[in-house]
């Protein structure tokens, strides 16, 4: 590991100023960055620790019902937050899949997004909930969809000098629910071979009014499954329909074969997990989800 300067700013503006230099890297939980630096896969001449900035660690329920999660908030803080657990249970449960307890106590939501692994466990549920990203730079702030931030394995669309400040979950849609399911050989401490998040909203007649299906570990980034989503709209969520959506989602996937699984195996997993995640969402709504 090369020597570096360590800075601990207390405001977003000070952090952005400190990061606006080549060789500067943001540090949140460090669960990816520290081993990457120790193994020489990433280098930094300046480390800017974000954990002492109130706005970056806060989780705030806004008057309109949306929830802003500071990018440096830990997985543990996100999963234990009462409003997130009650209204966005797919988000709360998905961050509990990141590593073990020790990692969850440090790993940040923003780090899981910005490390940009195609298998990042926090990302599919956030995309299914249509989350947005607030980004700061020396020029001020901008907001984008979270999907626009993801460019490829290990790559985001953030420009040098830009800092992810928070993730905003939009206000809850009545009669909607989401679920994230992944497949791993081991239940804990493993990386998804494939994962699927589904968000579904039903109308007063019980038909599907809107749906978002997000596939993970089967493309360079988490991706939507547009063909499967289109099939669902206006239909009653019968098990035959959900199975058919799974079949279409498997065609929307763009998996590779690697040591963790073949492309064919991943498509089969997508098909099964999509139908199950949709059924889970429907069951939550029928059970009286908020």
């Amino acid at each position: 590991m090369q020597a570096f300067e360590y800075l601990r700013p207390e405001t977003v503006e000070a952090a952005v100023a400190a990061l606006n230099e080549s060789g500067a890297r943001a540090l949140a939980g460090g669960t990816d960055l520290v081993p990457q630096m120790r193994e020489g896969r990433r280098s930094a001449s300046r480390i800017v620790d974000l954990k002492h900035i109130g706005e970056l660690t806060a989780i705030t329920v806004r008057p309109d019902g949306s929830v802003a999660i500071g990018a440096a908030a830990t997985a543990t803080a996100v999963s234990r937050h009462a409003a997130i657990a009650a209204t966005y249970p797919a988000v709360a449960s998905s961050v509990r899949l990141i590593g073990g307890v020790q990692v969850q106590n440090r790993a940040s939501l923003g780090g899981n997004i910005c490390n940009a692994a195609p298998s990042a466990d926090a990302v599919p549920a956030l995309l299914a909930q249509d989350a947005r990203a607030v980004i700061a730079s020396p020029q001020g702030r901008r907001e984008s969809s979270l999907a626009e931030l993801l460019h490829g394995p290990g790559r985001t669309s953030l420009s040098p000098g830009e800092l992810l400040v928070s993730i905003v979950l939009p206000p809850h849609t009545p009669r909607s629910a989401a679920a994230y399911l992944r497949f791993t050989p081991r239940r804990e401490m493993d990386i998804a071979i494939a994962g699927v998040a589904a968000w579904i909203a039903l109308d007063a007649r019980g038909a599907i009014a809107a749906a978002r299906i997000v596939l993970a570990s089967v493309a360079p980034t988490a991706i939507r499954a547009p063909t499967a989503e289109a099939k669902l709209i206006g239909e009653q969520p019968t098990s035959a329909l959900l199975t058919e959506a799974g079949r279409l989602a498997a065609q929307d996937a763009r998996p590779i074969s690697d040591t963790r699984g073949s492309a064919d195996y991943r498509r089969t997993l997508v098909s099964v997990l999509t139908a199950r995640a949709l059924a889970d969402g429907c069951a939550q709504i029928q059970a009286g989800a908020p």
Binding site: V34, T76, V101, Q102, N105, R106
Partner: peptide
């Protein structure tokens, strides 16, 4: 334990 919560000491900088 760091402030009562388990952490991996190998993933934390001494500076922290």
């Amino acid at each position: 334990l760091m402030d009562g919560a388990t952490v991996n000491a190998c993933l934390i900088l001494a500076f922290e």
